[in-house]
Computed example of a mutant assay.
Amino acid sequence: MKRIFLLGFLLIQTLLFAQEKWDIQFYNEVVNREVFIYADNKEEMPMSAQFQFKLKNLTSTLPNDEIVVIPPKTRKFLIAKLAPIKANEGNSFSYSNSYNFGNALQETFDDDYIYSLPFEKGKTQSIFQGYDGKFSHQNEFALDFDLKIGAPIVAARDGIAVVVINNNTRSCPDISCAKYNNKIIIIHSDGTFADYSHLKYQGAIVTKGDLVKKDQLIGYSGSTGFASGPHLHFAVFINRIDGKRTFIKTKFKTSESEATLLEEGKSYTKNY
């Protein structure tokens, strides 16, 4: 019986990050009559993928729609093995997949971590939109710091810069402008991400892959993207395969407290 192998391959990237091209590759190798599907992930963070298979006379070690997490800086990571059911019959396969950054299966994180205020020592800044804010933070644990254009932004926690978008100049107070956000996204040691958004044009001074230390200068505030004025949008989250985020409440050290949740309408001083 003639053996037939038909490969169809579709990559779907989350529209929220259409500006970013992830350095990940999926491919397959045929050994005897078995098919091995692999991934090379050159990113500094895990990537999550979800597959849909169409199989004829083959079984897969990875069920349809099950999410697989590919570790960072990994080559030839085995995604699935396809094996014949009946040895003397023809077989074929095709598959499609979608993928996104981060460990989409993650549920635990360091809930006790104390963040540093993301602005300069000696400054006092207000929170003009807090958790579940009415303008753009519905169902989000995100904070908007009232930073003027060009104000220094420092890292609230150690990590690695995994997204740096720096070239946008446009803004408007509508969600349609979210694609114009200049931003830095940093992955932390517990797998969570911090989003620093609305930086000014060419406002980031770190590049993708840089190790970032807590309180290190990473960029300058602006008003790009979905913004009605200059500010720093800050949020910590776990990313999901469909681009949705599980937001995490973050405690900060301030001049008045060693660990506090920041509230909308209040001002906080950094004395460290």
Rank of each mutant, 00 (worst) to 15 (best):
I175K: 10
I160S: 07
N103S: 04
P173A: 06
K200N: 09
I85Q: 08
L217E: 11
T269P: 10
N181Q: 06
N239G: 08
M47N: 03
D65G: 06
Y99H: 05
L143M: 13
K183V: 07
T169A: 04
G133S: 10
N182V: 02
L143A: 08
Q216M: 11
D215E: 06
G8F: 14
M1V: 14
E140S: 11
K244W: 00
I205L: 00
S223T: 01
S98M: 04
N181G: 01
Y196L: 05
F36S: 11
T260V: 14
S60K: 03
P46N: 02
A83G: 02
R245M: 05
D242H: 03
P63E: 05
I218F: 01
L6M: 11
K208W: 01
D195M: 03
N88M: 02
A156D: 09
K251T: 12
Y99M: 04
V31I: 13
N182P: 07
Y38Q: 06
F237W: 07
T192M: 11
G133K: 12
Q106P: 09
H233R: 08
P72N: 12
N97E: 04
I12A: 14
N182M: 05
A87E: 15
V68I: 15
V31K: 15
A18G: 06
K214A: 12
I248E: 03
I175D: 08
Q13A: 00
G90C: 09
F234G: 03
T192S: 15
